[in-house]
Amino acid sequence: MERGRQALIALRRITRAMEFSARRLAKDTGLTNSQLMVLRILGQGEVTPGSIAIQIGLTQPTVTTLVDRLTERGLVARRRGETDRRQVWIALTESGKAMVASMPSDLQMSFHTEFTELADWEQAMVVAALERVAALLKADKIEAGPVLELGEIAPPQESL
Rank of each mutant, 00 (worst) to 15 (best):
R86E: 10
G74M: 04
G74V: 07
V76Q: 07
Q87F: 01
T65N: 10
T32D: 04
R85I: 12
L92G: 14
Q55I: 07
G81C: 07
G74F: 03
Q35M: 08
E46M: 07
Q44W: 13
V88M: 06
R79M: 11
L107G: 08
E94V: 10
T93P: 03
R85C: 06
L66V: 14
K27H: 11
E94F: 03
S51F: 10
L31M: 11
M103R: 05
T48N: 06
K27R: 15
P61Y: 00
A98K: 00
L66S: 10
R86A: 03
G57L: 12
Q108Y: 03
A26M: 09
S95W: 00
A53V: 06
E72M: 04
T59H: 05
M103L: 14
G45Y: 12
K27T: 14
Q87H: 00
V100L: 10
P49I: 13
G57C: 12
K27A: 15
F111V: 13
P104S: 02
M37K: 09
R40C: 12
V47C: 00
K97A: 14
A77P: 00
E46Y: 03
A26H: 05
E46F: 03
E46C: 04
S102N: 13
A26D: 12
G50H: 06
L70Y: 10
I41S: 09
R78M: 08
I90D: 05
L92V: 06
E82N: 02
R69N: 13
R78L: 15
T71Q: 09
S102W: 06
L36F: 07
L75Y: 13
R85A: 15
S95T: 06
D84F: 05
R73E: 04
T59F: 05
R79A: 06
M37A: 12
M99A: 14
I54M: 03
D84G: 02
G96K: 05
G96C: 04
D28V: 09
T71K: 01
R80C: 03
V100P: 10
R86D: 04
K97G: 14
S95V: 00
A53L: 07
H112L: 07
E46N: 03
A77E: 09
V88C: 01
Q60W: 01
L66K: 03
Q35W: 02
F111T: 08
K97S: 15
T59A: 09
F111E: 10
M37F: 06
G50C: 09
Q87P: 00
L42H: 01
E114C: 04
L75K: 09
I52T: 15
L39W: 05
T48K: 08
G30E: 11
